[in-house]
Design a protein around this nucleic acid. Structure first.
Lengths: 214, 214
DNA sequence: ACGTGCATGTTACTAGCGGTAACCCGAGTC
DNA sequence: GACTCGGGTTACCGCTAGTAACATGCACGT
């Protein structure tokens, strides 16, 4: 029948697609985000046009690749965010989960943060917007939702939650990026320091003698 | 004399360099960060090899370009950070200064955040490190210094200050980026929300009825 | 058995990029 | 006048993303 036929074809195509994605994964993790389509095709044992038939262009391939990792990371973050513990512990667990992920697979992390950038062909009209990696946006929105759902923030809570969601994610990202490069302390110390920041220690700290205070 | 001669030459070279940088600025602000060296050379009224003689490679040109804007932004941030007012006001002024800058010239902002990315020629060995834009790193370090100088944070203050510096800068960056794309509220509201976050309102907020709390 | 689609794969190409080698010319110097 | 030398150009290399055109093999209807 027609449907079974198309199902067979689709299954085959999907399997092929997964194989290609795994090959692309290997190459991107080995060569970095600037891996060439030729290299990816070679790793998959085929040639370029097939990649283009499956993914349209390089951006499509990278988007598909990024989605897999992004989904996986978001799942583990959701788990940490949903753990049965008090708020501070959950915040620390979430920070630690993120940091452990970027520590364990820094190449994946790097790819997710700088997926395509230079697509000289089909170019966007240089609008403002979509600067940051999609991963950051998605994490920000998810966290915003969690905050809005669980916290009582009074009037304007929705906007406040979104600002905080993106802000906290950005804090985590930047601190993690810096930490990954310099390794100035243990992961646990970093988690504690960031949680302290979120817990208002900045406002509570005293001025240093002689200075005007920050 | 030899020295005056060399001074003359150097002056001429410096003037040329400034002219080239201004031309590059125009092109980058018009075409985005993926402006080609050909286009920049054409805008400057010359040809590619001259650019390469002056700046080495594309990364060198972009670094020189970015340095100008970064220095300017850092100067205005320092001014806000040094204003004579209490801590919260200074924090808000600094956030507002940054946000006003990216709002006023989003193309400059975008260029500073994604300067080169894909330099297929002379490639780095895919080390972990130097992921983020240099601007973010510099802002983080500067803020860390200010925090350490002015705040009494007890033992481990230096590390804590650096974590906070990079974390706060990341928060500002990510929130600003999201805000610039969606414009969900006024700048003043955003500043207030972020300052509230830094002032510990996250920890102080009550749980919503029925939920486990964030 | 025989075309006929159709998916899969290839080779060979285009246009444009970053970067460079080789040449070229005018100004100043001995 | 020969001679170097800084500023400039043309013409190229190797690479990239992306595509057109051609080949091959497997399922179908008649």
């Amino acid at each position: 029948m027609d449907t079974t036929q198309r199902t067979d074809q689709q299954r085959s195509a999907d399997r092929r697609r997964r194989e290609l994605l795994e090959a692309a994964d290997r190459v991107v993790l080995r060569d970095g985000p600037q891996a060439s389509m030729n290299a990816i095709a070679a790793e998959a044992g085929i040639t370029k046009p097939i990649l283009y038939r499956h993914f349209g262009d390089k951006g499509g391939l990278y988007a598909a690749l990024a989605k897999r990792h992004t989904d996986a990371l978001l799942d583990s973050l959701r788990a940490a965010l949903d753990a049965p513990a008090d708020r501070r512990e959950r915040v620390e667990a979430t920070l630690d989960t993120y940091l452990a992920a970027i520590e364990a697979r820094p190449q994946v992390y790097r790819f997710l943060m700088h997926p395509a950038e230079g697509t000289p062909g089909a170019d966007q009209g240089f609008d403002v917007g979509k600067h940051s990696a999609p991963l950051l946006r998605r994490m920000g929105e998810e966290l915003a939702q969690v905050i809005e759902d669980r916290l009582d923030l009074g009037p304007g809570s929705q906007q406040l939650a979104r600002v905080w969601g993106h802000g906290i994610v950005g804090m985590m990202h930047a601190a993690g990026d810096w930490w990954l490069g310099e390794r100035p302390c243990s992961r646990a110390e970093l988690v504690r320091s960031l949680a302290d920041l979120l817990w208002g220690r900045l406002a509570a700290a005293g001025d240093k003698i002689g200075g005007p205070g920050f």
